[in-house]
Nucleic acid binder design. Structure first.
Length: 157
DNA sequence: GCCAACGTTGGC
DNA sequence: GCCAACGTTGGC
């Protein structure tokens, strides 16, 4: 099983929005970055565990846990001229963009802020805390995953 | 293939 | 609101 982290701006789609979806499940559409797409297309498997990360907000950080419930398939918003994610170069016969389905598992017992993660030397190699990181989907190493979970009830700062 | 210009992300 | 970092575009 693999571990991941996926970012979303809570003003657009936050963890409470996911929790309130029918079946607490939603497709993760709108990813328009090839690296992130390739991970969804090639590596994300049913049962993989995912941190939900809130970006571009008052306290950026990890807010919950989700699970992959459907593996990569075409992102239909790319074909919809009304969608803000419309991409005229994505052909339904040869889709350029991919999404997965994600299910809400739980909130973390507290928000684990980026500022705290940055201070943990156990996480110094994590892509998330690297300067200039802009990837909206990234892998998390098992030891990083477990360490972050250990912070839930045991703040490091 | 190079690279400048531009647009976006996202922390602060 | 600012701006650094990064990806993409397009002229050459």
């Amino acid at each position: 099983m693999n571990y991941w982290l996926m970012k979303s701006e809570p003003s657009a789609f936050g963890i409470d929005d996911l929790k309130n979806m029918p079946k607490q499940t939603e497709h993760w559409d709108g990813v328009r970055n090839y690296q992130a797409r390739n991970m969804m297309r090639d590596q994300m498997k049913i049962g993989d565990q995912v941190f939900f990360y809130h970006s571009n907000c008052d306290v950026p950080g990890i807010v919950g846990i989700m699970e992959v419930v459907r593996e990569g398939y075409p992102d239909h918003t790319a074909f919809d001229p009304q969608s803000k994610y419309f991409d005229p170069k994505s052909d339904p016969q040869n889709p350029r963009w991919i999404m997965v389905d994600i299910k809400y598992i739980r909130h973390t017992r507290r928000v684990i802020p980026l500022a705290e993660l940055k201070q943990c030397e156990q996480l110094e190699n994590m892509q998330l805390v690297r300067k200039g990181n802009r990837l909206s989907i990234m892998p998390v190493q098992p030891d990083e995953w477990n360490f972050i979970l250990s912070l839930e009830d045991n703040p490091s700062i």
